[in-house]
Each structure stands twice: as structure tokens, then as C-alpha cells.
């Protein structure tokens, strides 16, 4: 399990205290980080998949959370990149949902490793847990965020 968790989330994929207030810029910032870490081979190509998905319908899910995601052949290894905005902002003009926690998820086009998918599923379930969300809001370091993800992904 240990290696799988490390591969999904990484300290360098975490951006705390984000002051950007629009989803495009935040998604781009996180995608670039994934590119720098080698999780994504072509950031622009990956972004296309994410924005296409976002077009379908907003990925704001309530609870102050948005989970933009893309399935793309440019994703080398499944990952979650995380951004916490200093203030809540309106994610999508089509809805009035305020968002503060952003989780950008990337998975490869071809069938991803089941372990990775399982971890993503566990983290998704974990986000429905009030105490995990509260701890993510309170966390002040990337290391802390990684540790919380680790607990959720178990």
C-alpha cells in the first residue's frame, strides 16, 4: 500500500493558500505541477480532457469541494493534486457553488492499476467524512495534507 499511496499524492502536487479565484487558472497551476513531477507527459493535452469534462457539468460537488478530473493518455501515473484557496469562490457561473478545496484527479486512458483506482475511490468516500474535510481545511503544511490523504486512502 505504501508505494501506491505515495504515487497518488505527492507534496509537490499540493498548493496551499491559493489566491487565484477562477477554476481555469487553478486547474492549470495544478496540472503544471503534475507535469513537472512527470505524472503528465503533455500538460496542454491533459488540460483539454479536464476542461472537456468540466464543460459537461460542473465538478463542484458541494461541501466547498470541486473535483475536476481528466482521463487521458497523457497521464503517466494516476494522481491527485490538491489546492486550498484562501477564500471560497464561485467555481462555475452555471451554479452558485462556493469552493475552497480543489482536487485535480488524473487517470490514464487505458485501464489504470486497480490499486490506484481503489485509493482514489477511498479518498472520494473519505471526502464525504466531515472530520477529514475539516482537517484538510485546517492543515497548514503539504506534509500534513499528504498524511491525511494517506489515512483516507487506506
Amino acid at each position: 500500500m505504501e508505494w501506491g499511496r505515495k504515487m497518488i499524492i505527492h507534496e509537490s502536487l499540493i498548493e496551499l493558500n491559493v489566491t487565484l479565484k477562477n477554476k481555469e487558472e487553478i486547474i492549470e497551476t495544478l496540472a503544471r505541477k503534475a507535469g513537472e513531477l512527470g505524472r503528465v507527459s503533455d500538460v496542454a493535452g491533459f488540460l483539454q480532457a479536464v476542461f472537456a469534462r468540466e464543460e459537461l457539468f460542473s465538478t463542484a460537488i458541494g461541501y466547498g469541494i470541486a473535483i475536476p478530473h481528466g482521463k487521458s493518455s497523457y497521464v503517466q501515473e494516476p494522481f491527485i493534486a490538491f489546492a486550498k484557496s484562501q477564500e471560497a469562490f464561485s467555481w462555475d457561473s452555471r451554479t452558485d457553488q462556493e469552493v475552497r478545496l480543489i482536487f485535480l484527479i488524473g487517470v490514464p486512458e487505458e485501464k489504470a492499476n486497480d490499486l490506484h483506482l481503489k485509493i482514489l475511490a477511498n479518498i472520494s468516500r473519505g471526502l464525504m467524512n466531515d472530520s477529514y474535510r475539516e482537517r484538510l481545511v485546517q492543515a497548514t503544511s503539504a506534509a500534513k495534507i499528504v498524511a491525511i490523504f494517506g489515512e483516507m486512502g487506506l
Partner: peptide, 29 residues
């Protein structure tokens, strides 16, 4: 559609709400 996040969030949310209201629930994902 992508089956990586919403499916499992909905599962957790419905499970919690149903149990909270005293029901038995089983959810296929």
C-alpha cells in the same frame, strides 16, 4: 461517467444518510 470519484462519494453519502435515518442499505457501485 468516469467512475473514479462521484460514484464513490455518492455511495458514502447515501450510506451515511440512510443509516442515520435507521434504514438498511446496500449500494452497488
Amino acid at each position: 461517467p468516469t467512475g473514479i470519484a462521484h460514484t464513490y462519494m455518492a455511495q458514502a453519502a447515501l450510506e451515511k444518510a440512510a443509516l442515520g435515518r435507521g434504514h438498511d442499505i446496500k449500494i452497488e457501485t
